[in-house]
């Protein structure tokens, strides 16, 4: 059979279109009546696991849940809530504070932080639910052989400081460490390091002497580092808390609120550390880790 080049081109285009449509996936349905709850984890293992825990928990309770591919960080999560692309996010309250009220005074008392961010979330049409006892705070980390025990001790050591780009503009982070009114540390040099295991690699290799990490990073004990005491109380409270679209919450009523509060109350700091050890050290997948935890607590 002989085709002209034009007919061949049309044929190819049609074939391609058929393949593309065939690749699309269908969606399933769930039990409890109400709108779909769209949930997306921030793009680091702990947040991905947390999103899976909340998502799978709600699924097991019969809600219609869509767990989206993890993407972005706090800003993208809050923007997603604001632009109605997401219905539920889980964030660290101190982190929310820096994003929503960067000029507000920070506090190590979670209730004080919540008093500020609660109304701020209401302004964007979202409701802050009860915070969990689980805390993943900021950690000023040094190698195990460092003479320092508190952050203040670092002032005289001439350390090379490594942290993510975010840290360098935050009063609760780099600006606070260098501010003479707080810690007044003069670092020998600063290096911007992507947040995550690269911080530990840089610290172990001696490229930097101190990094800002999170307290539930399993590599801290794994690699023999230590967390210095925040003697000036610079770091804010960092309990995890779900934030949900008010419209969606109203659609479901108190049942959803109670279900979420019940789950938040059950998660502990030790759980976060255990999850991270599974995902980052044993290299297991977040969704499996979440399923196992929910099974152990008979929540699914």
């Amino acid at each position: 059979m002989k085709f002209s080049i034009l007919k061949k081109l049309i044929l190819l285009t049609v074939a391609l279109a058929v393949v593309m449509t065939a690749c699309g996936d269908g969606d399933g349905d769930s039990a409890v009546d109400g709108p779909t709850i769209r949930l997306r984890g921030q793009d680091f293992s702990e947040a991905v696991t947390i999103a899976e825990v909340y998502g799978q928990y709600l699924l097991a309770k019969g809600y219609d849940v869509e767990i989206l591919t993890p993407a972005g960080f706090r800003t993208e999560a809050i923007d997603g809530l604001r632009n109605d692309e997401l219905d539920l996010i889980v964030d660290y309250i101190g982190g929310s504070l820096t994003a929503l009220a960067p000029d507000a005074a920070t506090s190590a008392d979670p209730d004080a932080v919540v008093a500020i961010i609660g109304p701020a979330y209401e302004e964007i049409g979202a409701t802050l639910l009860d915070y969990s006892p689980a805390v993943d705070g900021d950690a000023f980390v040094v190698r195990g052989d460092s003479p320092a025990t508190t952050i203040s001790d670092v002032a005289s050591l001439g350390y090379v400081f490594g942290a993510s780009a975010q840290c360098f503009e935050r009063p609760q982070c780099y600006l606070g460490y260098t501010d003479p009114a707080v810690y007044g540390i003069t670092f020998a040099e600063t290096v911007t390091v992507e947040f995550g295991p690269l911080l530990g690699e840089a610290l172990a290799a001696g490229e930097v002497d101190a990094v800002v990490w999170n307290t539930t990073a399993p590599q801290i004990t794994e690699q023999g580092f230590k967390v210095l005491e925040d003697d000036q109380g610079l770091h804010p409270a960092q309990n995890i808390a779900p934030i949900i679209s008010t419209e969606l919450l109203d659609a479901y009523g108190d049942q959803l609120r109670n279900d979420l509060n019940e789950l938040s109350a059950m998660i502990t700091t030790a759980d976060l550390l255990a999850w991270n050890t599974e995902t980052d050290i044993a290299k297991r997948e977040s969704d499996d880790v979440a399923t196992e935890w929910l099974e152990a607590k008979s929540l699914n």
Partner: peptide, 16 residues
């Protein structure tokens, strides 16, 4: 990747 150069502004802008 732990370095600087002209990309630092894009990195800092994205991060901040």
């Amino acid at each position: 990747l732990g370095g600087d150069g002209l990309g630092r502004y894009v990195r800092d802008g994205l991060g901040q």
